[in-house]
Design a protein around this nucleic acid. Structure first.
Length: 704
RNA sequence: GGGCGCUUAGCUCAGCUGGGAGAGCGCCGCCCUUACAAGGCGGAGGUCGCAGGUUCGAAACCUGCAGCGCCCACCA
């Protein structure tokens, strides 16, 4: 911490206490000593600059699923650099910290913990289970905040928030009720993405598509009147058990006569119609599509247009149910094999081709997602997306680098309604109640009777909200919304959001929509997108790869500042940052160099504090003096510009090159002569040295 | 099927508005010279992916190609 170097230099007035300025840079004790002092003195609170203009950043709240990883350390280093710099510039700078309850992810973690004890959450029951998750949260959340302190994060802990705090939970209800009353939240039976492992619905972006070498089975469906057959192609043969029609394109000559006729579904015997629908691509396969309304979104749409029934053939575990007749009890992949075999026996299987296509997986557990017709809550996003697009179009919010805007626009322009209900226990329970007569009451406060019929027996919806529903409100709920608090007035809109490109859809776009809708203003003026931390060979850090590096371990070995320095030094805007232990070692070496330059300067100030000497000399400057002063001025310009564009790498590299290559290698060496000469020469060199050192230390403070 | 990014020294990368090829780490040689061996001094190392084009001049701008990586996608 260069701030400490300066502090040490100033307290070490006599230069006599050798221990106070050891020969080697020892970050451990210094970091441990200063952080608590800074925190308790209120140095991290915006109130330290009471008259400053507000500058604010809300943390992308880490999930309370475990501990911090290198990605967090990196992101926090960038945020901290930004906030520290603004604080130095006199802004009332706020970095608001906090954590996210992370619904499915945390529930899964706790369920795994329970499994170790041989307990299933259903045995515990809902309340006891949630109790357990709160215990887990207390533990994990505490770990995270301690780790952030260890890394030197200058956030205002007095304003720490959690997505399931009382205040934020209240805000969630207010938002839900308001959207419901505006007709922007509705409940409907629709095809959603179902995870058979997590037992819950997922939104479209919670599904990760992956190219798979699959198959395309051609199946013959005979006409009921015995006049031949229609061949359909499918990647999921087992779903034919739920077919209720076959569709062809209305202009397709081949099927002109077939439309309106009846087919007999093989294996099942159900009579199903041939319908004509524009959605069918006559070029694909045979041009005839089997229609399974309960298990395919396209087919569901077709079924609505032709008034077809939907037959759900799966249980919540994706095992064939009673609608699957003799295949009941088989898991969907077993069923696929069995159905093909049975079809082959009947002579209905025309053939099977290989076919690569994308298959959706649950982003939390990697299980293959099952499209399923289900009664869920949705947000109608159309009216929300427009303003969010406009706000970025007219630069009320700017992305850095700008190219990410395109991604943002593409997504918002093609949004489908957002499924927000989750069939899990950990999260914000949906504020909807049902009376015995089927009336629905949506309310901020728990109702005691049905608003329509007065019935007293109300049952609350069992589901909880998508975790991103509450994190999407983060920039204003953390500041006190819906109350009109001083903080909300002062710090909203926030200044900049530092975040990764991977959550532009999940989080950034949602905050933009909700922020604009509920506060009338954008949630942040800028979105600075950073890359991913990778290993020294550019590979993604992953547990299965065994290349994850624990930030705390590196911080203990080289100092938190050395780690932050190494991370930031590689952070060109939007680029991934590779990290090897040697880079961190290099950071530590640089700080050691700086430490020793401070030690040298301190030894030659005749006991005067650095701040007192750091004034430009009035005597005539030597060539060397003028050179270093001009180089310093240039460095300040470049470093400043780098920070301003969030090009931290540029700023830090320049600063390092100047400090080491020019100030230490040349000026300090040259200064030894005038320092030894004494008199005015000595005084002049002292002032130049102190001026430069002081400037360097202050320029570095945002990072280390 | 769309879109984006990358390709510069052994490794990881910077090079922003065209005119000097750079950094960190690694490597080689000599130095424990009282700020610093976590260091100092000196040094090796690059047809800037390929092919064209624009220009007095291109690593940088344009076009095409190749390789790598990422994101999105309800052609069964």
């Amino acid at each position: 911490m260069s701030g400490e170097a300066a502090a040490e230099a100033e307290t070490n007035e006599t230069g006599a206490e050798a221990d106070a300025f050891p020969k080697a840079y020892e970050p451990g004790p210094a970091e441990a000593r200063w952080y608590p002092e800074w925190e308790t003195s209120g140095a991290f609170r915006p109130e330290v600059n009471p008259d400053g203009d507000p500058f604010s950043i809300v943390i992308p709240p880490p999930n309370v699923t475990g501990s911090l990883h290198m990605g967090h350390a990196f992101e926090h280093a960038l945020i901290d650099a930004t906030v520290r710099r603004k604080r130095m510039q006199g802004y009332a700078a706020l970095w608001l910290p906090g954590t996210d309850h992370a619904g499915i992810a945390t529930q899964n973690v706790v369920e795994r913990e329970l499994a170790k004890e041989g307990v299933d959450r259903h045995e515990l029951g809902r309340e006891a289970f949630i109790e357990r998750v709160w215990e887990w949260k207390a533990h994990s959340g505490g770990t995270i905040t301690q780790q952030m302190r260890r890394m030197g994060a200058s956030c205002d802990w007095s304003r720490e928030r959690f997505t399931m705090d009382e205040g934020l939970s209240h805000a969630v209800r207010v938002v839900f009720v308001r959207l419901y009353e505006e007709g922007l939240i509705y409940r409907a039976n629709r095809i959603i993405n179902w995870c058979p492992r997590c037992h819950t619905a997922l939104s479209d972006i919670e599904v990760e598509h992956e190219e798979v070498e699959g198959e395309l089975a051609r199946i013959r469906y005979p006409f009921a009147d015995g006049s031949g057959h229609v061949t359909v192609a499918t990647t999921r043969a087992e779903t034919m058990l739920g077919d209720t029609a076959v569709a062809v394109h209305p202009e397709d000559e081949r099927y002109r006569d077939a439309v309106g006729k009846t087919l007999v579904l093989p294996l099942v015997g159900r009579e199903i119609p041939v319908v004509a629908d524009e959605a069918v691509d006559p070029e694909f396969g045979s041009g005839a599509v089997k229609v399974t309304p309960a298990h395919d979104p396209n087919d569901f749409e077709i079924s609505l247009r032709h008034d077809l029934p939907a037959v759900d053939i799966f249980t919540d575990e994706a095992v064939v149910n009673d609608n699957g007749g003799r295949f009941a009890g088989l898991d969907r992949f077993e069923a696929r094999r069995a159905v093909k075999e049975a079809l082959a026996e009947e002579g209905a299987l025309e053939g099977v081709d290989t076919h690569t296509h994308a298959v959706g997986h649950c982003y939390r557990c990697r299980t293959v997602v099952e499209p399923k017709l289900s009664l869920q809550w949705f947000v109608k996003v159309g009216p929300l997306a427009g303003p969010a697009i406009d706000a970025v179009r007219d630069d009320r919010t700017q992305f850095v680098p700008e190219r990410w805007e395109k991604l943002y626009f593409d997504w918002l322009e093609n949004l489908r309604d957002w499924c927000i209900s989750r069939q899990i226990w950990w999260g914000h329970r949906i504020p909807a109640w049902y009376c015995p007569d089927g009336h629905v009451i949506v309310s901020v406060d728990d109702p005691s009777e049905c608003a329509e019929c007065g019935a007293g027996e109300l049952r609350q919806d069992d589901d909880v909200l998508d975790t991103w529903f509450s994190s999407g409100l983060w920039p204003f709920t953390t500041l006190g919304w819906p109350d009109e608090t001083d903080d909300l007035a002062r710090f909203y809109p926030t200044s900049v959001l530092h975040t990764g490109f991977d959550i532009i859809y999940f989080w950034v776009a949602r905050m933009m929509q909700s922020g604009l809708h509920f506060t009338g203003d954008v949630p942040f003026r800028e979105v600075a997108i950073h890359g991913l931390v990778r290993d020294a060979d550019g590979r993604k850090m992953s547990k299965s790869f065994g290349n994850v590096v624990d930030p705390l371990e590196l911080a203990d070995r080289y100092g938190a500042d050395a780690l932050r320095f190494a991370l930031v030094r590689a952070a060109s805007p939007g680029q991934d940052v590779p990290l090897a232990e040697e880079w961190v070692e290099g950071g530590r070496n640089f700080l050691n160099k700086l430490w020793n330059s401070a030690r040298f300067v301190g030894q030659h100030l005749d006991g005067r504090p650095l701040g007192e000497v750091a004034v430009p000399p009035d005597a005539d400057l030597t060539l060397a003096d003028r050179w270093i002063v001009s180089r310093l001025a240039r460095t300040i310009t470049v470093v400043d510009a780098g920070f301003e564009r969030y090009d931290f790498a540029e700023a830090v590299r320049e600063l390092q090159a100047f400090t080491w290559g020019e100030f230490c290698d040349w000026y300090i060496e040259v200064s030894k002569l005038p320092l030894g000469a004494g008199g005015a020469d000595r005084e002049r060199a002292q002032r130049v040295l102190a001026t430069a050192l002081s400037a360097i230390v202050r320029m570095l403070h945002p990072v280390a």
